[in-house]
């Protein structure tokens, strides 16, 4: 049975998982950006994501009250226990992959945080009020790059289109809700992802259009991340992310 408290933990953890896994993907790319300023930008955005994830994991740990700390949620859960969307775990081949993945996510977070500012849960509302300001910077940055790359040289345009073609199938999951989302929305602390689809879609269409790129016609959308069914890439990411805690249990700074 789905209870409001159980759902609160699930709901908060999903959002935190998206942020943690994305922060790790960005961290992987930190020393590979095309210019120094971009490495700073990627490091900054990764850190913003990590900071919000930390606040939400702490809250999830408090709500669950099962003796697991925020660090344990991040470093000691298995692949099947992670409920991030499939988009954030997708690997990148080049800068276009990084920026397109980031843009899809930033556009989603902008809608999500704006809606969650009105959450009846004071902690979620406080995190959202803070995160929405950061998301505005993030989306300006990533959408700017999508346009510059897409409408740049033939090479950058082709690579950015390739990134959209390979990542588009993972975007539908962002706005696909399940029973937990419905419970969270009904209880007032969460929002139905489908309600945010219009705003997300409008922004994405506008930016991709300005970039002179196209959205794939294939309607297939992969899901399963929210239920812990992931693509093969998450396990490898977690192996690196969790290495220190697995090798040296209880390690602290």
């Amino acid at each position: 049975m789905i209870t409001a408290t159980g759902t609160l933990r699930v709901y908060v953890t999903r959002i935190a998982d998206d942020l943690l896994i994305n922060a790790q993907r960005l961290a992987e790319y930190m020393t590979n950006a095309p210019e120094l300023e971009e490495e700073l930008a990627i490091a900054n955005i990764s850190l913003d994501n990590l900071g919000v994830a930390q606040a939400l994991y702490s809250y999830a740990a408090t709500v669950a009250d099962d003796g697991r700390s925020a660090d344990e949620l991040a470093f000691l859960r298995t692949e099947r226990e992670f409920t991030n969307c499939l988009l954030v775990e997708q690997p990148h081949r080049d800068f276009a992959d990084v920026m397109v993945r980031q843009f899809f996510l930033d556009a989603w977070h902008l809608e999500l945080w704006a809606a969650l500012e009105a959450s009846t849960d004071p902690t979620i509302a406080a995190v959202a009020a803070k995160a929405v300001k950061e998301a505005r910077y993030h989306v300006r940055h990533s959408s700017g790059w999508v346009v510059r790359l897409g409408d740049g040289t033939p090479e950058s345009g082709a690579r950015t289109q390739r990134a959209i073609d390979s990542l588009w199938r993972f975007t539908g999951e962002l706005t696909t809700g399940d029973n937990h989302d419905a419970t969270a929305a009904a209880a007032g602390f969460g929002v139905n992802p489908a309600d945010l689809e219009g705003g997300w879609n409008a922004r994405v269409q506008q930016v991709i259009g300005t970039a002179r790129l196209a959205i794939p016609e294939d309607p297939f959308q992969a899901t399963g991340g929210r239920q812990g069914r992931h693509t093969e890439h998450l396990g490898h990411l977690l192996a690196e992310l969790q290495f220190m805690q697995r090798a040296y249990p209880g390690l602290d700074w």
């Binding site: 300023e37 490091a43 900054n44 955005i45 940055h141």
Partner: peptide, 13 residues
């Protein structure tokens, strides 16, 4: 503005 993200999160370059 060279970059909206500078040496710290609160600064641009």
């Amino acid at each position: 503005t060279v970059s909206e993200f500078g040496s710290t999160a609160c600064q641009a370059l």
